[in-house]
Amino acid sequence: MEKIKFVIDGKEVEAIRDQCVLDVARQNGIYIPGLCYNPEVKFSGGSCRLCLVEAHQAGRMSLVTACNYPIREGLEIKTDTSLVKRIRKGIIELLLARVPDSDVIKELAAEAGIDEPRFVKDEGENYHSKCIACGLCIQVCEEVVGVSAIAMLNRGPDKTPGTPYKKPSEVCIGCGACAYACPTDAIPMEDNGDTRKIWGREFKMHLCSVCGKPYIPEAQIDWIVKTTGKDRVFFDKCPDCR
């Protein structure tokens, strides 16, 4: 892997060619906000637009998303200019009007100096809970879990993740990866005794044979056994008791 140097906020930093700006910035302790990107998920990023930074290359400046902008020779990144702050603030205000209940967004708004959005807050029919429609849940389910139980329903302003036709999904294994990955904690998942509720379906949980803790949905065990050929006995004990 080819190592190259580039400049970020005036500092010369080393990176691997085509590595994304956000990863390297974070490794170097430079803060850039960003919600829809997860380094473990290949196709994530590019949607929330919170990680916009100035990229200066070949005498030209453009505003780019740090989470997928590839580092190449001669690149200079500025993360804290007035342009970056202005556009970021505009995006945060739009998100705040969409999901006024989200703590994550409220925090970003406070940081940017926004008290109240100048737009009518989405509520009633327009209520989005805390979902910013970034699509990370869908990518995780497809790419990491390999199940594709959820997809984007509708498009444009009505875009929202969900199970097909909003009916309980038959392929969902109840693993909850989507809920763990969600940057705004918008996916309701209820663990109650030996049942788990997610996406409108109830899953029976498997109990650890040692400590008795419900720790994994039966459906997930079935899935793992089916796709990897792992011995079912392996799941008798929870990771803590193994």
Binding site: G46, G90, I91, L94, L95, R98, M152, G156
Partner: peptide, 13 residues
């Protein structure tokens, strides 16, 4: 608005 794919915040919102 009708043609926006809804993927990114500025355009969708």
């Amino acid at each position: 608005v009708g043609e926006s794919c809804g993927k990114c915040t500025p355009c969708r919102e």
